[in-house]
């Protein structure tokens, strides 16, 4: 599905990712944890194709294609979905209009038939229930004035509608209350399938109680410095990052 090799990324001359290696196979769920500023969102954004980031070295293969050669919209159409840490407000564009356009844009690109108004409405109703979103939000401008939790649910709704091959969740759990957290996790679990993979960026082991990952990676200073199974997350919850930082720093000091 996804193979990242020695990925190095800089922003304004500053190196942020300093050689990332990661392979995600179909059906796998990878959790990425790590202290603030370690480069988690950067990695997520580079996968989605954000322009501000300069890839200085390395390669990314996605379903056999050179991902770095693909435009942002092409990547989305090929099944990459990024749930944003901070979803953007689009004034004057109703959430419903936006959802219809994206669903049909992606369907069209994938050679599927576009949905008509009735089919669309039914699909939306189903998925809205799944993420526990207030239906009235559909008539409001996209993300405008949405509460933190509403924004995150709206992201999950979009993911459920677009049915991606690779879902990347950037701290979708932060700012959610306990119930919302469970609903979001439930949505992801329902979407889990042998041919769909997830990369889940989170600070909290809590989420991983619900979405049990196959792998947990710790990103620190632009590198994956430790990988393990779900127990690594428990360990981190228990001990924090200091022990890992110390390990790494002592290694680099040598």
């Amino acid at each position: 599905m996804l193979i990242i090799k020695n990925l190095k990324v800089a922003v304004e001359e500053k190196e942020i990712l300093r050689g990332i290696n990661l392979e995600v196979k179909p059906g796998e769920v990878h959790a990425i944890m790590g202290p603030n500023g370690s480069g988690k969102s950067t990695l997520a954004n580079v996968l989605a194709g954000r322009e501000d980031y300069e890839v200085t070295d390395g390669a990314i293969q996605y379903q056999g294609h050179d991902l770095l050669e693909m435009e942002v919209d092409e990547r989305a159409q090929a099944g990459i979905f990024l749930a944003f840490q901070y979803p953007v407000e689009i004034p004057g564009v109703s959430t419903a209009t936006f959802l219809k356009s994206t669903v049909n844009a992606v369907r069209k690109a994938q050679g599927k038939e576009e949905l008509n108004a009735v089919q669309m409405l039914k699909l939306m109703r189903d998925k809205i229930k799944m993420v526990g979103m207030d239906e009235r939000l559909l008539q409001r401008s996209l993300n405008e004035g949405f509460s933190g939790g509403e924004k995150k649910r709206s992201e999950m709704l979009q993911m459920a509608l677009l049915e991606p091959k690779l879902g990347i969740l950037d701290e979708t759990d932060s700012g959610l209350d306990i119930d919302a957290l469970r609903i979001v996790a439930e949505a992801v679990n329902q979407l889990r399938s042998p041919d769909r993979s997830f990369i889940i960026v989170t600070h909290y082991q809590r989420l991983l109680d619900y979405i049990v990952p196959d792998f947990v990676h710790v990103l620190y200073n632009g590198r994956i410095v430790k990988s393990g199974d779900k127990n690594l997350a428990l360990q981190l919850e228990d001990k924090g990052y200091d022990w890992i930082k110390e390990e790494v720093d002592s290694l680099t000091a040598m």
Partner: peptide, 23 residues
């Protein structure tokens, strides 16, 4: 970036933003 990440072409994304602004 947000709109294109959801599969809209650059042109469609611009139109959507501008139309919203003129709503």
């Amino acid at each position: 970036f947000y709109l294109m990440q959801r599969g809209l072409s650059e042109e469609d994304a611009v139109n959507m933003i501008v139309n919203g602004y003129c709503k």
